[in-house]
Simulated scan of single mutants.
Amino acid sequence: MTLDDAAVAALSSWVRRRGIGSAVSDVEPLPGGTQNVVVRLRVDGRRVVLRRPPPHPRPNSNRTMQREIAVLQTLAGSSVPHPEFIAGCEDLDVLGVVFYLMEDVDGFNPLTEIAPAYAADPRMRHQVGLNYAADLARLSSTQWRGRPLQQLHRPGSFLARQVPNFLGLLESYRHDRYRPEILDAGRLAGWLDEHRPPDGEPGIMHGDAHLNNVLLRRDVPEVAAFVDWEMCTIGDPLLDLGWILVCWPDDPDPINAGRELAALGGLPTRPELIAAYTDAGGRSTRNLDWYIAMACFKLAIVIEGTYSRFLAGQAHREAGERLHDSAARLIGLGMRVAVGDNPFS
């Protein structure tokens, strides 16, 4: 999706009122996520990116944009790779939704593209994986108290809320053609509740950390920016580490993240990722199996929603059935972790 003439005119008026610039031009859609709309444009020759909800916003779409705005404002000035925040708009009279502008990061997404330097040198591919894990550790220690993200912090046990919250999400998918029981998540949920570790110090979580949600620098093995912050929260950052281990493009590989990069080989192993995370100041990995199993549980339930929507006639068959197969596989992998047969070690 791009912006129609009326939206461009409204946006141009808004950037003038905000003192950002005088004219909007060269509007083009960017490929990427399916949950929100990302558009590249120019403001007085400066390349920027606009992010907004989809054409048919969900009930929480505007809150998601507000969350992302708070993330980028909180990360400003930190060492965590992120797009620079320019301005946000919560006035629904402008585009009808909350939106924001951020810098256009020079990088590539390894889901769909490989920069020539990475294709030519396996050392680049190996090092960028290690740097990716180290950047995730830095995110976990970034200051959030007294910053915009503090509004996401809830009192009480973050970990104790996870199983009931996500079982509730799974139940919300129920309709005449879909029964949540088909995912068979109950046994894993029980194990997670029974073996839950104590809560650590709250920190920033990306919430959906994998190679499809980064931009990599083209000529050096570094992360240019973490992107797609819609699941970011204040919680237990070790869930991010569990998440990247589950989603790492190695056997087992339940979601095929970063497939173009992975196809070339040379990426770090999961133990190497863990070492890079801890060496960069990440948290103790003593209870890591629990976080890996929880990542399997949460990711399975998140992607199962597409299968429910397919059965309701609101999503494509191919995506629905493929993601349901992945969700069922994730639950099975989580149970293997629970019984001591960790396939991600």
Rank of each mutant, 00 (worst) to 15 (best):
D4M: 01
A6I: 12
A6Q: 13
A7Q: 15
V8L: 05
A9M: 12
L11V: 03
L11W: 04
L11K: 01
R17W: 09
R18W: 02
G19P: 13
E28S: 14
L30I: 04
G32N: 04
G32C: 05
G32T: 10
V37E: 15
V37P: 13
V39L: 08
R42K: 15
V43M: 10
D44P: 01
P53E: 13
P54G: 05
P57N: 05
R58F: 14
P59Q: 05
E68W: 01
I69Q: 04
A70I: 04
Q73S: 09
T74E: 00
G77P: 02
G77Q: 06
S79V: 15
S79W: 12
V80Y: 06
P83S: 13
L95Q: 13
F99N: 01
Y100A: 03
M102H: 03
M102T: 08
E103V: 00
D106Y: 07
P110F: 02
P110E: 07
I114A: 07
Y118N: 03
Y118H: 09
D121N: 15
D121W: 12
Y132F: 13
Y132Q: 01
Y132M: 07
D135K: 11
D135S: 11
L139W: 03
Q143T: 14
W144D: 02
G146Y: 11
Q150W: 13
Q150T: 11
Q151G: 11
H153A: 14
R154P: 00
F158W: 15
A160N: 07
A160W: 02
Q162V: 15
V163F: 00
L167A: 08
L169Y: 03
Y173N: 03
R174K: 10
D176R: 12
D176A: 14
E181P: 01
L183D: 02
D184A: 11
A185E: 02
A185W: 03
L188I: 08
W191G: 11
D193Q: 14
E194G: 15
R196D: 04
R196F: 02
G200H: 04
G203M: 05
H206F: 10
H206C: 11
A209E: 02
H210G: 07
L211I: 13
V214I: 13
L216M: 12
D219F: 00
V220E: 13
V220H: 06
P221A: 10
A224R: 01
V227M: 10
E230M: 10
M231F: 15
D236G: 06
L241Q: 05
I244C: 08
I244G: 00
I255R: 08
G258E: 02
L261C: 05
G265D: 14
G266Q: 14
L267F: 10
P268D: 07
R270P: 00
I274C: 12
D279F: 05
A280F: 00
G281I: 06
G282Q: 05
R283N: 08
S284C: 06
T285P: 01
N287V: 09
N287K: 07
I292R: 03
A293H: 00
F297S: 00
A300R: 05
A300P: 10
E304K: 08
G305Q: 04
T306L: 09
T306S: 10
T306G: 03
T306M: 05
R309D: 00
G313N: 12
G313Q: 09
A315G: 08
R317W: 12
R322H: 14
R322C: 01
L323D: 06
A327G: 04
A328K: 14
R329Q: 13
I331N: 05
L333F: 02
L333T: 03
V337P: 06
A338F: 06
A338G: 10
D341Y: 02
N342A: 05
P343Y: 10
P343E: 12
